[in-house]
Computed example of a mutant assay.
Amino acid sequence: VRHGMLLAVAFSVLIIVGGVIFLPPFLQGMGLAPEVYHIALWYMAGLGIGVLPFFLITPLRSLVDTLGYTKLSMKIYLLALPVNAFLNYVLIFGKLGLPRLGGIGAGVATGITFWLLLVMFAVVVTKLQPFKQYDVLGFVRPVKHLVAEYLRIGVPMGVAIFMETSIFGVVALFIAKFGTEVIAAHQAALNFSSLIYMFPMSFSLALTIVVGVEYGAKNYQGARDYTALGLEMSLFIAMVYMALELVAREYIALIYTTNPHVIELVKVFIIYAIMWQGGDAVAAPIQGILRGYKDVNATFWCSMLAYWAICLPVGLLLDYKFNNGAFAYWQSLDIGVICSAVVLSLRLVLLQRRIKKDEE
C-alpha cells in the first residue's frame, strides 16, 4: 500500500505537469469559442485540484476492499455524494458569498470532493481495525522489486481496461455520420447497457478479491470454488435481466425519448446490447478471476485481440463492405465480446489445469 501511494504521487505529478503543458494547446486545436475555451480550461484545472487525492485514494480503497470491507468503501462514497452536490450548487451559482463560477465551479467542486474522500479513507485506515495495525501511512523507502511488481501487475490491467472502454468512444465517432437520431438511439442504448454492466463488473471486482485471497493462501480448491460460484451467479443474473430487457425494450427507450423513430432504433440496439451483455456476463467475471491469479497479461492481450484486432475491423467491414449501417458497429461489439469470452474461458481452464497439476 505504501509503494502504491508512492507511485500515486509520481503519476499525479506526471498528470498535472502534462496537463499544464499540453492541455491549453490541445483545447486551442479544437477550435473552441473563446468563452467555451476559458470554461473548459479552468474546469479541467478545477479537476486538477483532485488529481493527487484521487490517485492516493485508490491504494487506500483497495486495502479496505481487499480485507473484505467493501460496504465501508460504499458508505464513504455515498457520504461524499451529497457533499459534492452541495459544493456544485454553491460554486456554480455563487452561494454563501462565494463567486459564481458556472461550469468551472463543477470542476472545482469535484476536486475538493476528492480531498474529502482522501481524508475519510485516511481516517479509516489509521483509526479503525483491522486497518490500523498495518500503519500504511508510515514512511517507506522505495524497494525496486516491489515497484517493479506493482507496475508489472498494474500497467497491463490499466491498459486492458482502457482498450475495452475506449472502443465505445471510437465506435461513437463512426456512428456520428448516420445523423442525430441514430446518435441519440446509440447513446440511449449504450447508456442503459452501461448501467447493466455494473452487474458483471461487480462480480469481476469481487472475484479478484476472493480468488486472490485464496490463491495467495495456497487454498487452490477454494479459489476454484469461488470461480465456479461467481460464474454461475453472474450467468443466472444475466439471464434474468436479459429476458427483462427483451420484454421491456420499448419502455427502456421511452426513458430517453418520445421520438418514434428513435424509439424503434433503440429497440433494435437493445437487442444487440442483450447479446453483448451475455458475453460480458462471462468475460468480465473471468477477467476478475485471472487478475486474482495475477494473470494480468492474458486479460491485456485478450482485450487487444477482441476489441482492436477483431471488433473494430469487423465493424468497418460490415459498414463499408456490407452496408449494415450503424448496426454494423453493434454487431462487431457482439462479435468482439463473444471472442473475448471464449478466449478468456480457454485461458482460465488452462491456468487452473496447470495449478492443479502443480498441486499433485
Score class of each variant (00 low, 15 high):
Gly29Asn: 07
Tyr220Leu: 15
Gly97Glu: 01
Thr165Cys: 10
Ile209Ala: 14
Lys75Gly: 06
Glu35Cys: 03
Leu67Asp: 13
Ala185Gly: 12
Leu351Lys: 10
Thr113Asn: 15
Glu359Gly: 04
Lys71Asn: 09
Val17Lys: 05
Glu250Lys: 14
Ile286Pro: 01
Glu232Asp: 06
Gly29Ser: 06
Leu79Lys: 10
Leu265Ala: 09
Thr110Tyr: 06
Ala243Tyr: 01
Ile16Thr: 09
Phe327Asp: 13
Tyr37Arg: 11
Val343Asn: 00
Leu78Glu: 04
Met157His: 03
Ile49Arg: 03
Tyr272Gln: 05
His261Gln: 14
Arg61Phe: 13
Gly31Leu: 09
Ala106Arg: 04
Val170Arg: 01
Met239Glu: 02
Val210Asp: 04
Glu232Asn: 13
Met74Leu: 13
Val211Phe: 12
Gly158Tyr: 13
Asp280Ser: 11
Val170Gly: 02
Gly212Val: 08
Leu32Val: 09
Ala185Arg: 07
Tyr77Phe: 15
Lys321Glu: 13
Tyr293Phe: 13
Gln352Trp: 09
Trp276Glu: 00
Phe203Val: 08
Gly97Thr: 01
Asp135Gly: 07
Tyr272Ser: 06
Leu231Phe: 06
Ala326Lys: 03
Glu164Phe: 10
Pro313Phe: 02
Glu164Asn: 07
Phe114Tyr: 14
Tyr89Cys: 11
Gln331Cys: 00
Ala176His: 10
Ile167Trp: 02
Ala223Met: 05
Leu41Pro: 08
